Computed example of a mutant assay.
Amino acid sequence: MSNKAIKIGIIGGSGLDNPDILQNKREVSVTTPFGAPSDVLIEGEISSVPCVLLARHGRRHSLMPGVVNYRANIWALKEAGCTHIIASTATGSLREEIHPGDLVLLDNFIDRTQGRKQTFYDGGENSPIGVCHLPMEPAYCEKTRQVLLQAGKSIGLNIHEKGTVVAIEGPRFSSKAESNMYRSFGGSVINMTSVPEVVLAKEAGICYASVALATDYDCWRDSGEKVSVAHVLQTFKNNVSKMTQLILAVVPLIAAETWDETIDELQNTVKSSVMLPH
């Protein structure tokens, strides 16, 4: 086990933010130098491991992707002491072999968002000093990804081991031409929230991994049902239990690992990426 105290943040996407996964839960209202997070933090435990649940879009799903305060969300989890974040996200599939209902363990991203704040080091009154030129390879914490994969296999889930997510601005879905363009880019799945969340988590020195639930085939296929809210919600309802099972399985596995070196290396990467004024 780590010398560092392990605490796991869980960011729930659409329909994937059920607080009942936590024991001894309590709500904590917080604010940050970057404003308020999407909702209260729900502190509790899974298998006696301290965890914090945050609904990315708010518990009433009132925040569209482009107005989520990603900086406040990540800062709030950092201040709560989270060493890890496991994020869940609903995605459209850009690949025939990724079927609706499948889980994909993301390992890379393509950013097609517009105008979102992607750094804490923005020169603002409350920002850290300097400019952070953060390397994004690897984009996600590889060790955390591997523990997630191990957890999935231990409970019999079939998970795609890698996937590149294309993050679009939304809230509209893609045109067919756009969908095919993202396929040509090498995208595996598509969503509206992975960026800047993954960037900010790394900049905060937190071990971050994200599991995508494919809900549809977007609109690139010539046959079959096109993406729609009704279709997405029905696929959620049928498959959300997979994500819950995975989170419940992975938390004790993360706590059983030694993370000191991984966390130190990540935090040193961030520190060495900051250019201070001179």
Rank of each mutant, 00 (worst) to 15 (best):
L134K: 12
N180S: 09
P19N: 09
Q234W: 04
L63F: 09
Q146K: 15
E125M: 14
D264V: 11
Q23A: 14
I74G: 02
L148N: 04
V104D: 01
C82L: 04
D102E: 00
P65Y: 06
G163T: 00
A204T: 02
I6N: 09
W75T: 06
E265G: 07
L266M: 13
N191H: 09
I190T: 01
A76P: 03
G58K: 09
N24Y: 10
L148V: 04
P196F: 02
I110Q: 04
V274L: 05
H278N: 15
C82A: 12
P135C: 12
E137D: 15
H278S: 13
V40F: 06
L53Q: 01
I98C: 00
W75L: 07
G123L: 04
L103V: 06
I85G: 04
A214H: 03
N238H: 15
N3A: 09
P196C: 07
G58S: 04
S62T: 15
L253K: 14
V67R: 14
N239R: 10
P50V: 11
A72W: 11
R116S: 03
L54Q: 07
T119Q: 10
E257P: 08
S184V: 01
D17C: 10
K78A: 12
H61C: 08
G205T: 07
Y70R: 06
N180Q: 14
S62E: 15
L200F: 08
A249T: 05
A230L: 10
A87R: 03
A255L: 08
T83R: 01
G130R: 08
K153F: 06
G224S: 11
T119R: 00
D20M: 12
G123A: 07
E97F: 12
L53E: 02
I21N: 05
I206F: 08
V240S: 15
Y217F: 14
S174D: 05
E96Y: 09
S38C: 01
S175L: 05
I74A: 09
G66V: 06
Y70T: 05
I110R: 09
L16G: 04
V250K: 13
T235M: 14
E45W: 03
C219L: 05
V251Q: 05
S62K: 15
L213D: 05
N126T: 09
E137Y: 15
I11P: 00
Q146F: 13
L276K: 12
G124R: 09
T258H: 15
P252W: 05
L266C: 03
A76C: 08
P19H: 07
H57D: 04
S93Y: 05
I11C: 01
I206S: 04
G205L: 02
W220F: 14
A80H: 10
H61W: 11
P138Y: 14
E203F: 10
T32P: 01
E45Y: 10
I46K: 00
C141R: 01
S188N: 14
R221Q: 15
C207V: 12
G163K: 06
E142S: 14
I74Q: 07
D216T: 03
G224H: 12
D122S: 13
F120M: 04
K117S: 10
L253V: 12
E257M: 13
I254C: 08
R112W: 08
R112H: 14
I6H: 00
A214D: 05
K237H: 15
S223I: 11
E225M: 12
M275Y: 15
I206L: 07
A36H: 11
